[in-house]
Structure formats: structure tokens, C-alpha cells
């Protein structure tokens, strides 16, 4: 990946708010300018240059972030364009409220991946988040549009209050999936025979649109690309919210 590289050099375990480090905000800026930008971290204020080693390159071409033990919160939150690649794990609210662009996390993600930032009514509004590892609770909470694909498992309350969009979790999810879901799709890579609470059993069949999802994810290397079938068990819900959402468990 060409573009700008940020390699963490602070103390392991330091919590850093990365919501200001977005490709669209850094595009065209020099390394020196970026290094001088303020960066909330560890309960105080620092600068990007104090916390990261920066390589020369234009963030418009993409951002490569190497966490090296840092707890990076809100990576890609609010991003509308461009590309971020994280070579490691991220903390909570990665891609929260994201409106476009691509966020790739090679490791694990924390809670509220692609969800809503505190106090805001909607989660992710567009773009693509792909995670090579697993993700925490409340993934895709209040999500409005876009795709989140997680190769591992996601935690509790996945796709909670989802308005629309697609969350695909390769190794299934924790309890209470689709709680309060209005529309949208939670796709699980594991079979499931029993309907979650407030979901109705819609039966098993081949789903043509999953071919379209697979095409959309071409090149990401995600589990959806590798899935050999489009046959899935459909659960319709949350019926308390009108029942237009769905959980699809691959057969």
C-alpha cells in the first residue's frame, strides 16, 4: 500500500483517539504538518509526531497504521473517502459513523465496530469495513448503509437496531443478534437452526443476492469470497420493529 505510514512508538497500552486521522483530512499534507497535529491520547493531549513515526507519502493514496501495542480508538470513525489499513488490532468504535471509503483491519476490532459514536443516532452510513480477526459487542449498531465483513466472530448484540446495510460474520455471533433490527442483513458463516429472540423462521434456500455481495467483496480475501455456497437459513425480524430485517445463517 502506498501512501502515508504511521507506526506507533509510544508506550504499549496507551489509548489513542484516532478519529482525526482520516485520509481525507490528511490528503496533501506534508509529514511535518501531520506530525504537528494534536492527538488526544492517554487522557491528555499529544501530537501525531509524538506518538507515531511517520513515513513520507500522501494520505490520499491511503493510510497504513501500525498499532504496535497501542489501543487505537475510533480508527476511521467518520471517514467518508480513502483507505485505511491497520496492520494489527484496533480498539472500540472503529469505522463508527463512517460514510464511505475502505477500512481494513488485519487483526481484531473492539466494540461498536461500524456503530454509532456516543450521542449520535446512526452508525455506519457507507463504505466497506473488513476485519481479518474478530470483533467485539455491538458491531453494526444502528448501521444505515455499507458493508462490514468480519472473518472471525462478532460479540453480543450484533446488528442491534440496524436500519439497513450488511454485516457478515464468518464465525458467527454472540447472544441477542439483531436486537431491535429494522432492516438490513446479518449474515453468519455458521449454520443456525433456531430462531433468535423476536425472529421468525423464514426457511432455507439459495440467495441470489449473495452472489452480488461476493462480487462486491472481490479482492478483500474475506470469508464471503471463499464461501462455497449461497444457501442459507433465513430468520426474519426483529418482529417487534416491523420484521423487515434478516439474519442469514449459511447452511
Amino acid at each position: 500500500m502506498s501512501g502515508m505510514t504511521l507506526t506507533f512508538r509510544g508506550k504499549a497500552g496507551t489509548m489513542v483517539d484516532m478519529s482525526a486521522i482520516l485520509p481525507e483530512r490528511l490528503a496533501g499534507r506534508t509529514v511535518e504538518t501531520v506530525a504537528g497535529l494534536p492527538l488526544p491520547c492517554g487522557g491528555g493531549q499529544s501530537t501525531v509526531g509524538d506518538m507515531f513515526d511517520l513515513s513520507a507519502g500522501d494520505a490520499a493514496e491511503g493510510l497504513l497504521i501500525r498499532p504496535i501495542g497501542a489501543v487505537l480508538q475510533r480508527v476511521g470513525a467518520g471517514m467518508t473517502s480513502g483507505r485505511i489499513l491497520v496492520d494489527g488490532d484496533v480498539g472500540g468504535h472503529a469505522g463508527a459513523g463512517m460514510g464511505g471509503g475502505q477500512l481494513r483491519i488485519e487483526g481484531d476490532a473492539g466494540e461498536a465496530l461500524g456503530g454509532a459514536l456516543p450521542g449520535l443516532p446512526l452508525g455506519m452510513r457507507g463504505g466497506l469495513i473488513s476485519v481479518g480477526g474478530s470483533a467485539g459487542d455491538r458491531v453494526a449498531e444502528r448501521m444505515r448503509r455499507g458493508i462490514i465483513v468480519v472473518d472471525g466472530a462478532v460479540g453480543a448484540f450484533a446488528a442491534g437496531f440496524m436500519v439497513a446495510g450488511t454485516l457478515a460474520a464468518g464465525r458467527g455471533c454472540g447472544p441477542h443478534p439483531g436486537f431491535g433490527m429494522r432492516r438490513g442483513t446479518l449474515l453468519l458463516g455458521r449454520p443456525q437452526d433456531t430462531a433468535p429472540d423476536n425472529f421468525a423462521d423464514g426457511g432455507t434456500r439459495d440467495w441470489l443476492f449473495l452472489h452480488l455481495l461476493r462480487r462486491a467483496l472481490q479482492g478483500t480475501g474475506s470469508w464471503v469470497e471463499r464461501a462455497g455456497t449461497t444457501r442459507a437459513h433465513r430468520f426474519i425480524g426483529d418482529v417487534a420493529e416491523g420484521g423487515h430485517g434478516e439474519i442469514l445463517a449459511m447452511a
Binding site: 455499507g146 450488511t166 442483513t185 434456500r205 439459495d206 441470489l208 443476492f209 452480488l212 455481495l213 462486491a216
Partner: peptide, 17 residues
């Protein structure tokens, strides 16, 4: 379903969608 820049509609019909 909106994948990338393309929006698709899934309409329930008697043989599926």
C-alpha cells in the same frame, strides 16, 4: 441492498426472490 455504487432490489416472488 447497496453494494458499492450499485443498488439492487430484492422482491419476494413465488419462486423465491
Amino acid at each position: 441492498k447497496k453494494f458499492g455504487d450499485r443498488r439492487f432490489w430484492r422482491l419476494p416472488v413465488m419462486d423465491g426472490e
